[in-house]
Every structure is written in structure tokens, then in C-alpha cells.
């Protein structure tokens, strides 16, 4: 079956870890993830500048490794990302900001990508809050 997983919370929220474990279990169960969509505070998980305390689970790093290892389509909402200072090279240049912090494997795009993916998937599962 095909899943879309939307993450609304930052990496330090328990729900982001829950989304990651759900996504890992979905792939392990033989299912497909057609898209991961990071929205609202979820965009912070894509920032390369997140420094997680050493005694805590580095969920943003686990997300990056998971997306890379499985070559997943990981979309970060561009409007949510810009207002939170999560920028790729193109946007940093466009708005004349000093640095970019959104490297590969992440892709900046619009909310339409969530809608489009939800139409093509069997299930949309959202994770947010605590």
C-alpha cells in the first residue's frame, strides 16, 4: 500500500520520532512511502543547523539518514520554511540571506505537493503536537 506521511512538529517533539518509527515500520512491512511532507514546525527537521544535545535522540539526523538511505521524496513546505529561516541556496540568494541550511536530500516546494501525494496514496497519516 502507498503512504503519505506529513510531519507538523519539530524534531525535538515526540510526535516527530513517532512519525519516523511509523515510516520505518511501513517500509519494513513492504509498503511504499510516496512522499514525506514536512509542514509548519516540521520544517525544522530539515535544517542542517539543528544541534541536538548529546544525551538526546538526534531525530533530525535520523530523518536525514532515513530519507537518504531509501531515496524518499521528502518535501519541505516552502512557505513554512521561509518564515522559519530554513532556506536552500536558491532562496538564500533570492532573499539575500547570509547562509543556506537546507541541503540535499530535502526539496522545497508548495502545499500542493501534499494534496497531490494524498490523491495518489492509499493513506495520509499526519503526525504533530506532542
Amino acid at each position: 500500500m502507498k503512504f503519505v506521511i506529513a510531519v507538523f512538529s519539530p524534531g525535538h517533539a515526540p510526535s516527530s520520532r513517532r512519525a519516523l518509527l511509523f515510516a520505518q515500520a511501513a517500509l519494513a512491512g513492504g509498503h511504499e512511502i510516496v512522499r514525506l511532507f514536512f509542514y509548519q514546525d516540521g520544517v525544522h527537521s530539515a535544517s542542517a543547523n539543528v544541534v541536538t544535545p548529546q544525551d538526546e535522540n538526534d531525530v533530525p539526523a535520523h530523518w536525514r539518514e532515513f530519507v537518504t538511505a531509501h531515496q524518499l521524496d521528502a518535501v519541505v513546505c516552502i512557505a513554512a520554511a521561509l518564515r522559519r529561516g530554513v532556506l536552500n541556496d536558491e532562496e538564500a540568494n533570492r532573499y539575500q540571506r547570509p547562509a543556506a541550511n537546507l541541503p540535499v536530500p530535502w526539496e522545497l516546494s508548495g502545499l500542493g505537493q501534499l494534496h497531490e501525494a494524498a490523491q495518489s496514496a492509499d493513506r495520509l497519516v499526519c503526525f504533530g503536537g506532542d
Binding site: 500500500m1 503512504f3 518509527l21 511509523f22 515500520a25 512491512g29 509498503h31 497519516v125
Partner: peptide, 10 residues
């Protein structure tokens, strides 16, 4: 557990 969560969603 998480595998059961995935199946539950289906």
C-alpha cells in the same frame, strides 16, 4: 507496536 500501527491504519 509500530508494525501494528501501520496495519491498523490500513
Amino acid at each position: 507496536d509500530y508494525p501494528a500501527f501501520v496495519e491498523l491504519s490500513l
